[in-house]
């Protein structure tokens, strides 16, 4: 079943040096419960696309629908509640002057879910779900480690009880040991809560291990969309092969696979 459908979506920015086509006539669908990876380098339009899905950037043209209902640029609170974001930089994504609890509670306040004590209970539960002590809610972001802050970012999105999570490079700023734990957590949460993920990243090795399908973007266009298995056994576009060829590998089986897919560069 399709949860989010995108049809011929475009975004053009007007700049002093002429129009910039950040996203060009992109069409694809995200299925209920899947993890769709969006892969691309800087300038691929992946962030612009995410901002249009999240409703913080108006489209130039095209259609979006969520759960078979059209998703306008001017979102209802129900629209907003069902699509949440986890950002890349866990330091900047939390307001340094607000407590963790206040940040996580923002969605509940905005959508007016429950009374005051129920909201605090939800905040505690969300922190618990991401493996943090609910008592951390009283602290400010500066006293937390990078991994803990990223967990708070996930808890903030979860507290809203969303159906779709847009994960924008959620682990690129983290150390590899912390990354492994966060990816595990995201996997568990998706399974337990039946969430749908749009996982934006440039790291194909991460994609291989978390995504069901992969959409490869280049210069605002969708160049390849296929199941993860297909992408990593038989990549179709030159650009996908180029991206796979650039992945640094750590063991010989990986090296053999890379060489098989893209030739010994």
């Amino acid at each position: 079943m399709t949860l989010l459908s995108i049809k011929e979506l475009s975004k053009t920015f007007r700049t002093p040096s002429g129009p910039v086509h950040a996203v060009r006539e992109v069409s694809f669908a995200v299925n209920q419960g899947e993890c769709l990876a969006i892969v691309g380098e800087s300038g691929s339009g992946k962030t612009t696309l995410a901002h249009m899905i999240l409703g913080v950037l108006a489209r130039t043209s095209g259609e979006l629908s969520f759960d078979e209902q059209p998703l306008p640029d001017k979102r209802t609170m129900a629209n907003r509640q069902s699509i949440q974001l986890v950002q890349q930089n866990p330091l900047s994504s939390l307001n340094p002057k607000r407590t963790i609890g206040a940040s996580v509670r923002l969605g509940l306040d905005t959508y007016q879910i429950g009374d005051k004590s129920a909201r605090w209970k939800t905040v505690g539960a969300a922190l618990d779900a991401v493996g943090l002590e609910p008592s951390l809610g009283k602290r400010v972001p500066a006293t937390l480690s990078g991994g803990q802050r990223q967990r708070v970012g996930i808890a903030r999105a979860l507290a809203c009880n969303p159906r779709l999570l847009v994960l924008d490079e959620p682990t690129s700023a983290l150390d590899v040991l912390v990354q492994a734990r966060i990816l595990q957590l995201l996997n568990t949460l998706r399974r337990e809560r039946g969430l749908t993920y749009i996982f934006i990243t440039h790291d194909l090795a991460v994609v291989r291990n978390v995504a069901d399908r992969v959409a490869v973007f280049q210069s605002g266009q969708l160049v390849e969309l296929n199941s993860t298995d297909a992408i990593f056994t038989d990549p179709q576009s030159t650009y996908t092969r180029q991206l796979i060829g650039a992945v640094p590998v750590v063991d010989d089986t990986e090296l053999a696979l890379r060489n098989k897919l893209v030739g010994n560069q």
Partner: peptide, 21 residues
């Protein structure tokens, strides 16, 4: 060993259970 195990592989060997410390 933990560091090595934590690196995601393009061979798709899954996400390892490694402790942060």
């Amino acid at each position: 060993r933990a560091l090595m195990a934590a690196v995601p592989r393009i061979t798709g060997t899954g996400l390892p259970q490694v402790p942060e410390f």
